[in-house]
């Protein structure tokens, strides 16, 4: 049960949503956009977040799109993870989000919600990073399309909200692999999660679970694609060049995460390069 009161709005257009947000903010209210609500409900009931106003984006048609438009795959922010998997429009994304939470939760969890999660994992981002996805953002000044990284590096005003994710269709049918390792169960937060694509004989790979944010690193990819080295050499070098130190928490120690990361990278490289 959520103990505190808050306002609920369900706008049916983007501009109505933006206006509602700005009005609430001018009243001094802590306001958040949401779609599935799983994180808001579970955190609010244990007082880990508070808000004065929520704006439900599920009633906005643009947020519910899931289709190929020309040479772009467009995914609305309020589309559930299960719908993305079932559509099979981008198999790497479908397989990666299928590993988040459990089936019942994925009926509610949306891609926009996962990308905006307060938790460090945000695994839906991994396929988008390797596919150079763009995001369509709406705000007071109107809509704009930005590279994914820009939005999620929090370089933009929090009053703007995620409408859609746009992926160039040249990426959706590339060879891929999605791997997730947890502490124990098939369901759970990742000790290591990675998503990789093979484009022009080069591996593109993004990671979650090993540092405070999901990431893709040009340096790491450079090393992993240096075929003058053995797989083991490449992996050792890549792990030495991670952009941030490996985290340690109740799910796994940093040392174990490193061990699991190396194993996962071995599996990914061997699979993608057809070694096994």
């Amino acid at each position: 049960m959520i103990a505190f009161d808050f306002n609920y709005f369900k706008p049916s257009t983007i501009s109505e949503a933006v206006d509602t947000f700005n009005e609430a903010r001018e009243r001094g209210e802590k306001t958040i956009y949401y779609s599935g609500g799983t994180e808001i409900i579970t955190f609010a009931r244990v007082n880990k977040i508070t808000m004065d106003t929520v704006i439900d984006s599920k009633g906005i048609p643009e947020c519910n799109v899931l289709e190929i438009q020309g040479d772009k795959l467009v995914i609305g922010a309020a589309v559930s993870l299960n719908k993305i998997t079932e559509s099979n429009l981008f198999p790497l994304l479908g397989q990666t989000v299928k590993k988040i939470a459990d089936h019942t939760s994925r009926n509610k969890i949306t891609i926009g919600g996962n990308l905006n999660s307060q938790l460090m994992y945000r695994e839906a981002m991994l396929p988008l990073l390797v596919a150079n996805a763009k995001v369509r953002i709406a705000g007071k000044e109107g809509e704009e399309v930005l590279p994914l990284e820009k939005f999620f590096n929090k370089e933009i005003d929090e009053g703007k909200f995620l409408v859609q994710i746009i992926i160039d269709t040249q990426y959706v049918d590339l060879p891929f692999i999605s791997l997730k390792r947890t502490r124990m169960s098939k369901v759970g937060y990742p000790v290591v999660s990675l998503a990789a694509l093979m484009k022009n004989q080069r591996i593109r790979v993004a990671f979650s679970g090993i540092s405070e944010h999901p990431f893709r690193s040009a340096v790491v990819e450079g090393v992993l694609n240096d075929r003058t080295l053995t797989v083991k050499e490449r992996i050792d070098k890549a792990v030495a060049k991670l952009p941030a130190s490996i985290v340690q928490d109740i799910h796994a120690s940093a040392k174990y995460r490193e061990f699991v990361l190396k194993n996962s990278l071995t599996d990914a490289l061997e699979n993608m390069e057809g070694i096994k």
């Binding site: 502490r183 124990m184 098939k186």
Partner: peptide, 29 residues
């Protein structure tokens, strides 16, 4: 035996008093 355990930090505060972080053997396992 395989997965359940409360985890305490140095101040004795339980770190996983919820089913997000306290894992049980799931159906299928």
């Amino acid at each position: 035996a395989s997965t359940e355990s409360f985890i305490f930090n140095e101040q004795g505060v339980m770190q996983n008093p919820d089913l997000r972080n306290y894992q049980l053997l799931r159906f299928g396992e």
